[in-house]
């Protein structure tokens, strides 16, 4: 192939894309949809359930204050601290629950794997930015709240290229 045809072919291959819809996710307006409600773990089988590893969710009625999540995090990020909570549940004798510092968390999900009581899961929420360092520390009461997410955009593939529809 000589130089002229090569250059024309290269230009042509780029110009074709003027007519094709752009493959761009317009982020704050549209958000990608994830599988499921976030990463979960089933201690009875020892296998996780696929999902996005975002902000955690703590089920107060399951948590026994056993500290296994905190111990698992010690070798990773030291993001989980056990804090005092009002005595409400009989199974949580020490009345302690995890408090997670998202300034340190790396979202590996090993704390979810460590929990034998179905108490700690992850959710699809990833918008955790805060103006202060203290704002990144989520108390057990904040972790209890189920996040509101509106993620509905998916990759669609047609003959004329892929788009975020």
């Amino acid at each position: 192939m000589n130089t002229a045809t090569g250059i024309i072919k290269a230009l042509n291959s780029g110009i074709k894309h003027l007519a094709i819809k752009r493959f761009t996710l317009r982020y704050p307006e549209e958000k990608l949809k994830f599988v499921g409600d976030g990463y979960q773990f089933d201690p009875s089988t020892g296998v996780g359930i696929a999902g996005y590893k975002g902000r955690h969710m703590l089920f107060h009625d399951h948590c026994t204050g056993c500290q296994l999540c905190s111990i698992a995090c010690e070798g990773v990020a030291e993001a989980i601290a056990m804090v005092k909570v009002p005595e409400e549940y009989k199974h949580n004798k020490k009345a302690i629950m995890p408090q997670i510092d998202y300034g340190k968390c790396v979202f590996c999900g090993l704390c979810v794997d460590a929990c034998p009581f179905y108490a700690l899961y992850m959710t699809n929420d990833y918008e955790l930015s805060s103006f202060s360092k203290e704002g990144l520390i989520y108390t057990p009461a904040q972790l209890q709240v189920k996040p509101f997410v509106s993620q509905d955009s998916e990759i669609k593939i047609t003959d004329r290229g892929a788009t975020h529809g």
Binding site: V47, G48, I49, F107
Partner: peptide, 17 residues
Amino acid sequence: GARVTHAHFVPGGVRND
């Protein structure tokens, strides 16, 4: 469950199906 740094492989298989 993550875009990068998946932490997916573990000794004994993978984290989730």
